[in-house]
Each structure stands twice: as C-alpha cells, then as structure tokens.
Design a protein around this nucleic acid. Sequence first.
DNA 1: GAATAAATTGTTTTT
DNA 2: CAATTTATTC
Length: 756
Amino acid sequence: MDLSALNREQKTAVETLEGPVLILAGAGSGKTRALTYRTANLIFSGVDPKNILALTFTNKAAREMRARIVSLVGDRAHQAWISTFHSACARILRRDADKLGYTGAFAIYDDDDQASVIKEILKRFGIDDKFIPHGEIRSIISDMKNKLMDADEWFAVSKKDFYAQRVHDVISEYEVRLKTLNAMDFDDLILNTLVLFADHPPVLQSYRDRFHYVLVDEYQDTNAAQYRLVHALTAANGNLCVVGDDDQSIYGWRGADIRNILDFEADYPNAVTIRLEQNYRSTANILSAANGLITRNVGRKAKTLWTEESAGDPIRLFYAGDEREEAAWVCDQIRKLYKTDNSYGSVAILYRMNAQSRVLEEMFMRAGIPYRVFGGIRFYDRKEVRDIIAYLRVIVNPNDDISLRRIINEPKRSIGDATIGDLSEYALKENCSLFNTLYHIPQTLASRPRRCVAEFAALMDKLLAARAEMTLTQYVQRVLDDTGLLNMHRTEDTEESRAREGNILEFLSAVAEYEKAQAGATLEDFLENIALVTDLDRAADSNEFVTLMTLHSAKGLEFPYVFITGFEEGIFPNARRSTEEKDIQEERRLCYVGITRAMKKLFISHAEKRMLHNQLSHNPPSRFLDEIPKHLILDEIGAQSFSFGAKDIQRKATVNPRTGYTSMGFPRAILRDPYLPAGAANLTRGIAASAARAFSTGVLQSLFAPGDRVLHKKFGEGNVTGVTGTGSDARIRIAFTAYGEKEFLLAIAPIVKVLE
DNA sequence: GAATAAATTGTTTTT
DNA sequence: CAATTTATTC
C-alpha cells in the first residue's frame, strides 16, 4: 500500500504487524492516521478483518476509525470489531448472559439509576443519607470494581470500622439487587466479561481464536479491569498494539492506571516501541507552551514534540474583572475571528467544569453567536426522555423495578408513594419483582388504589402484546400514544412543556434514524445504544456552531481556535482535588491536553472574582500560567487590542491599577454595566454615553436592530421596532403578536435574538 | 392519600 | 440556581 503520506516513525508503526507494539503518540502526531493505515495494512497482508479487534474509549473515536479504514480497504472492514470497551463487552455479555445468571435483555444502568438503587437500599437499611451519602457509595463501588475487588475484598483493605461495615453491607446488597433487577452498571460490563472469561474457559478460548490482532487506543486511560481484559484476550499470541500518550492521562480519578502504559515494555520484554513526536497540528508557539508546561511533570516517558510550523501568533491572555466580562471578551474575540474565517465551527471554548458554561451561554445568546454545548446534561438524561426510556426498559426487562417506579405514576394516574410503598413491601416479602405485583395485587390495598394499579397493569399488557406486530419506530410511537406521555405535555401549553414535547419528538426521530441505519434493529439494541452513547458522539462536525465543552471531553479533538477559560487556582487546578503532587500532575496533563487542541490560536482567560458555588470568590491566577514560558504570551492588560477609536474616553476612564480592567476593558464596561451596575460605577454618565457612541461596532448597541426577531422570556417572540438611548439607559421596543408593543430597558430585558 | 407549593441544600472531570 | 426534600392544600 502507498505509505508516501507517512513519516518514518509512522511507517515503522504501520509495518510492524506482529508481536507487541507500543506506539507513544504525542498530541497531534498523526496517531489516527498511523492506526488506520496499520489496520488497513494488516488486511492487505492477508489478515481476515474478522480477526481484528480495535478498542477505543469513545464511540466517536471508534466510528472515525472504522470510517477511515473502510475508505482504505472497502466494506469488508466492517467485519472487524471496532468499538468501545463498553460496547464490545456488552456485545460479549448479551450472548452469554445466562451463564452469569442474567438474561440477554439485561439493562445497562447509568449513574442516575445506580443512585436510585443505592438510595433505595439506604432507605431500607435505615441509613441516613447524611451518614453515608449515596454519591460516596457510588464512587466506592466504581473504585472497587475498577480495581477488580468485590465487597468483601474491599472491606478487608478498608478501615474496618463501623462505617466501613455499613458501607460493606450496602455494597453487598447493591450487588444482589442489581442481579435481581437484571441490570449491570458500566463497570459491571467490563468486570462481568472478565468473570465470564474466568469461569467459562471455552468462551474465552472462542474469542482468543477469533481475535488474532488486538489494538487499543488511548492505552494510558485503561484501568485494571480493562488491562486484564486486554491481556486475557492477547496472552496467547501477543499480537497486541497499544497506542497512547502518558502525558494525556487524565482519567486517574476513574481508575485509569498510568502505569499500564509506563510498564508496557516491562510487561512485554520483546515489545517494539515507536515514538511519534512530530506534531502536525499546532503552531510552534502553542507547542512550546505545551512543552514548557508538561516538562514540570516527573516520571514521564521521554518525549519531546516538535514541529516544522512557524511560530504563529502569541498566546492571548485576558484578565477579566469577573466571569461575565470574561464571557464578553470571548464573544468579542469570536466576532473578530468570524470576520476573517466566516465560520463558527473553528472555535472551541474549553473549561474545567460544566457549571462554567452557563455564563458563556447567556452571553452567546445575547450576542447572537450560535453555539453548542457538549456534555453536562445529556439529551437522553432529560426527564421526559428518561420517562419514555423507562417505559421501554420495563417492556424489555420486567425485572427492572427502578424504571418501573419511575413510570408507574407518570403521567399521573393516582398511584402515589404510599401505594408504591405497599407494592414494594409485598414484592420484597414474596421475593418477586415489582412488575409481578401489578398482576397479584396484595389484599391489603384499598379499593381505589387497587383499581388504579389494575388499570396500569392492563395498559402494560396491551403494550407488551402490541410489540410483536410493528416496527421499532411505530412501536415507540404507540407507547407514546397509549401511555399519554406526549399528550400530557401537549395539553399543558407552556414554554417548558413545548420544549419537552420537542425533546420527545426528537427522541422519536432518533429511534427512526437508528432503525434506518441498523436494519432489523430490536428494541434491545436501541436501548443498549443509548445507554452507551454520549452527546459528544452525536456531535455532527459542523461549521455553524461554536463548541463549548469540558477539557476532558475535548481529548482527541482539534480546533483552529481554542479558548481555555477559568484559568484560576481553585478552578484549574481544581480545588476539589488534593494538593498532592500526583493530583496536580494530572491537572497539569489536563491543561496540556487543552493547549494541544489548538491549531492556530490559543486564548486563555481568568477572572479576578467570580460566582462559584453560589458565592463570590477571588481566585489567584492558575499556577499553570507561570509554567507557560512568558515570551509566548501576549497579555491583554497593557496591550490594548480594541479598536474603538475612543482614546479620549479611555484617558478619562478610571483605571484600576491592579487589573487595568476599567480602562482596557472600557467598551466592555459598557457591555457589562447592564449586568453589573457596580462595574460601571467608576464612569460618569457623560463618559458612558460617549463611549456607547464610540462603541457602535460593539456588542450591545448593534445586537438589536429594528426588524430583528427576538424571544422574550415572558412574552414570547416579537419583532424589534426600535432601539433608543445609550449605555445602560438604552431601551428597546418590541411588538409581540399576542401582547402588542412594549418597551424594555435593553440592559435587563430577558430577551435573546432569534436566529433565522 | 395524592397533588402542589415552599423550603432547602449541595455542585469535578465521564464510559 | 437547580433538584430534591418537606409542608400544605385538596
């Protein structure tokens, strides 16, 4: 095959097909290209695609790899297993679930479902959630499973005090409960596959016979269970190729063990190690910044990224007064970028915590910049969507009490907590599922609740019977109709209910889309798909939206322009983390990941004060700022970058000598005074007015013009008929269809521009 | 006993 | 500041 597009190291990677191979691939070093070429090369060399297993961490990575291999070798590449760890394990478990005491229809529980199970147990055991918070249990369970322990083994290494004893009881019960619910959590998928392999050697052997070549992407993020899985499959022939970058290991908190990659050569003494160190992504300045930062970490694999690219622009740093100003600056910069690039898709805003997105979103909405937030609340996590899913889950797996509880009184059918309590108690006593009690209603129930429960049971009967007759999409539509879930929102007619209805319809189209893509797909397939898919995977690469996401979700992606916001001690590095060197190093790697996402320009911002956890905090600049070589940074304080032609105003404006904020951020003072009157306190009315005039190209004044369509929080959509006044006195007149013409203070009106 | 209104409380990162 | 828990009304 034609390898002319590859450099020397990439060629070596592509041509080393047999035996253990470690590819240390720095950020932007053409890792995906090397991997796909290597897999294609395997197939060209006569390896049957069926014998190839490629494991990734995200569906997006899997999909991309599959598509690129298909483009190299054609459709037969589809016979290779290219999937995430979790999907591959789910697939293996579906086939042999009965060997482990589950049925093939087992549900996959996310952390929300997990929390429900744990809460239920805590309640039953009479343990106060404050004594042992359910979140605490959840992380212990996950931690324990990632380390391949069971409840007893966990207890053996714990403090063995009263607290640990109670935790142990809850965990043990959790395991029992999950099995009766016929459900597995995410960690179970990996762990139970290992159990299956350990207890049923012929099953393991069949997979060993099948997968002659195994490839693992992002190997630095594997935990003990995943490590064990990979090695169980490859122990016989050792044809294992792992790719990773120890500098990008950012999932230690999830059990990822960086030693897996650091010790690979010790695990496989005959391993071939290949280093990809030439970076094709970023400018030299961005790369120097990343290198300068990451060299502070110790215990790394020796590796230095280099590039043939020119230096490029300096890194832009902005010191904002608060988070709103920070967001306004980001908007400002994006407008400038848009003027040259004519695209919003080349921009990404990265932050440490999902909570940071809110202020950015508000400002983007006001500025009319189209954006999309990834992560945070997943589409499938929305209440109304979860409700439908719960119905479908119960239909597929009647043992799923957790889902049944969710929907038994949704929409309202007069089955309240008391009735549900009675039913659960009865189920516990009879040792049967909650679903079962619907058909054997306990005698203790009064006649009214009894009738309501019987009605619900009849509904479920009808739905179960209808399933065989129709296609997936038709069936989901039927469930929505018969349960009244859709109607419930339709009749309500509020802004919120309309949004919920929209989400339900979107869900329905997701079902249709899935059915179209996977011919003959069953309801079980679809449920598994949505359990393992994330919003990030749904992301269509688009030119029309600015991307907002956490630094964690940005791994593996690249953007021409990258903003990292909230560069403050306490946020990044995060205060929730210990100050132990180990934790700081992982935060530093996270920072390294963020910086190396940028191709052309990198923007960093921090704020003097910000609202955090609902209270005002003052955070010093992030220590990581000092670790980026000074000469690479262009500090916006002192380097006025706004061309508003309002120099006279700047001279008059009061300057905060420490932050330089009022003077340099002057146009923004106008922008932000609506939100924060205190920020404009330094300005006299006259200055504010003339600044607003000078600010004619700025955000606020030009944002709304007569003829614009806007959406008001209370009055709905309307047309702008006029904008008068300046600065914080600016007023906007809007004609609403239902409410007539009204005038608002532009500054505080809860309005956003409606994009056509 | 169920539905609704008011009060409270806790927030890192994710397959 | 939302999502859950607790008090109040129906």
